[in-house]
Amino acid sequence: MITPEYCRMMARYNAWQNRQLTESLDGQSLEVLTEDRGAFFGSILGTLNHLLWGDLMWMARFDPSVEAPTVGVKQSVDLHPTLGAWSAARYHVDGKIGHWANSLRAMDLTGNLHWYSGTAKRDMVSPRTLCVAHMFNHQTHHRGQVHAMMTDVGLEAPVSDLFLLPGEG
């Protein structure tokens, strides 16, 4: 389904996108970042926090050196109260994702992943490759929501085309 090379490319894409979002949102007021815009996770910062929460949750399942968040999905929007706090945590997690992806071997992507889902309230089993693909898809999905909210506010959203990832193509 997916390869270590795919994971490395998507980890680079994720970090690039998050750097661009940080640069684009830097200097915006907390009011702009936290105003409920009708998105599933409310605001720009709420959505960014949820995305970071999801990355931490999935990475804790893939890499035992990553600590899972101590809050559930409903509280994920409040993970960090400011863009600066989010940005620092985001940089750290993107480094963890990059390190994990760079150390992957094909055999690391085989078999099933077993975990308890607090959201579904049950034990889960899915192919490891499906879970990894889901993590990267989840990132792209929620960044798309952030882009839409930025556009709605009148901010210029950064380029997000995968084929424009520096160093690719």
Rank of each mutant, 00 (worst) to 15 (best):
L104E: 04
T151G: 00
Q145C: 08
W16D: 03
G167E: 06
L25M: 06
S160W: 03
M9Q: 12
D108L: 08
T140W: 03
R12C: 09
H50K: 04
T140V: 10
R8E: 09
Y91C: 11
K96Q: 15
G38C: 11
M57W: 15
Q139E: 04
S87F: 03
T82D: 05
V32Q: 06
G144H: 11
D161H: 08
M10N: 09
H99E: 15
V66R: 08
R8I: 10
E31L: 14
C7T: 12
S76I: 02
T119I: 15
T151S: 10
S126Y: 14
M149W: 04
A148F: 01
E31S: 13
F62C: 08
F163K: 09
N102T: 07
A101E: 01
L104P: 09
G38D: 09
R61N: 06
S87D: 02
P166N: 09
T82H: 05
M1R: 11
P158F: 07
W58K: 06
E31C: 03
M1G: 12
A68D: 10
G154R: 01
W115I: 10
A120C: 01
T129V: 12
A133F: 01
S43D: 02
M107L: 07
A106W: 07
L33T: 05
A148S: 08
V159K: 12
A106F: 09
H99Y: 10
P127S: 01
M9R: 14
T119A: 15
R122Q: 13
T82R: 08
L164M: 14
N137K: 08
L83V: 05
G118T: 11
V71I: 12
N112T: 11
D78C: 07
V32I: 13
L130A: 14
D152C: 02
T151H: 06
H80A: 11
L56N: 11
R8G: 00
W16L: 10
L25P: 00
M10Y: 14
V153S: 03
L155Q: 02
H92I: 11
G167A: 09
Y6D: 03
R12F: 02
N18R: 07
A88F: 03
F41N: 01
S24T: 08
S126W: 15
L21V: 03
M150G: 00
L48Q: 06
T34W: 00
L164A: 13
L164I: 12
R143E: 03
H99M: 13
T119M: 13
R128D: 00
M124N: 04
W53T: 01
G27A: 06
L83M: 09
Q20S: 06
Q145T: 11
E67H: 08
L165S: 04
L30A: 15
N137W: 07
C131Q: 15
W100E: 08
S76F: 06
M107H: 15
G154T: 03
T22P: 00
F136L: 04
L21M: 09
T119N: 12
H147G: 02
T70I: 10
